[in-house]
């Protein structure tokens, strides 16, 4: 039996080394914060279903990328087949915030001819006392790029769920409006299983019959 989902979205998580990409994803997919985490090598794959409305499930496939510069030649191959992305920086690390622009430039080059919907994520918001980036300036930068901004903490499970589901909803709306379309040879968005459709059409037939009675 397959779990029923409307769409499958592929997401990519990027940002400097040690900003907490893997921990954020693992909090989201496994529900726990790993006490220690291997530095990611190349790319890791994760997956989870989310329910954006009652009964409406989206399957998320998430690529976790290594932040280290040296792996860029590997990780950049994954932009093209992603429909959405979380761009992380660490609110206690100013440089990781300054590099946000560079990350976006990088994606711009490699995503073509498709587009990625990004959300800017200020991570480790539990460490507010060591904050080096204010929420205000992060919001301003995000707005400048037309992104949403959200602050998260994988350790304290703050906004983790929200970061992923908000992005998923945003993409879902674009798909619904036809601004993002399913395309042959592109893994970004795939449509769900047929049984769902068959099921609803049967219902339609049934209710029609009932109406005739």
């Amino acid at each position: 039996m397959e779990a029923i989902w409307l769409y499958q979205f592929r997401l990519i998580v990027i940002g400097d080394s040690t900003v907490g990409k893997s921990c954020l994803i693992r909090r989201f997919t496994e529900g726990r914060f790993p006490q220690v985490s291997d530095p990611t090598v190349g790319v890791d794959f994760f997956s989870r279903l989310v329910e954006i409305e009652p009964g409406k499930r989206i399957k998320l496939q998430i690529w976790d990328t290594a932040g280290q510069e040296r792996f860029r030649s590997i990780t950049r191959a994954y932009y093209r087949n992603s429909v959405g992305g979380l761009l992380l920086f660490d609110i206690t690390n100013r440089r990781s915030f300054q590099n946000v622009h560079e990350w976006l430039e990088e994606t711009k080059v490699h995503v073509q001819p498709y587009q990625i919907v990004f959300v800017l994520v200020g991570h480790k918001c539990d460490l507010d006392t060591q904050r080096q980036v204010t929420r205000h300036e992060a919001e301003k930068v995000a707005a400048g790029y037309g992104m949403k901004y959200i602050e998260t903490s994988a350790r304290d499970a703050i906004n983790v769920e929200k970061a992923f589901t908000d992005l998923t909803r945003e993409i879902y709306e674009l798909v619904k409006r036809g601004e993002i379309t399913i395309q042959e040879g592109w893994e970004g968005v795939k449509s769900g299983f047929v049984p769902n459709v068959v099921h609803s059409s049967e219902e339609v037939v049934k209710s029609d019959r009932r109406c005739l009675c």
């Binding site: 080394s17 510069e69 040296r70 990781s96 560079e102 990350w103 990088e106």
Partner: peptide, 10 residues
């Protein structure tokens, strides 16, 4: 975990 930070340093 001895990462080279994003673009600038590397």
């Amino acid at each position: 975990a001895w990462p080279s930070g994003g673009g600038v340093l590397g």
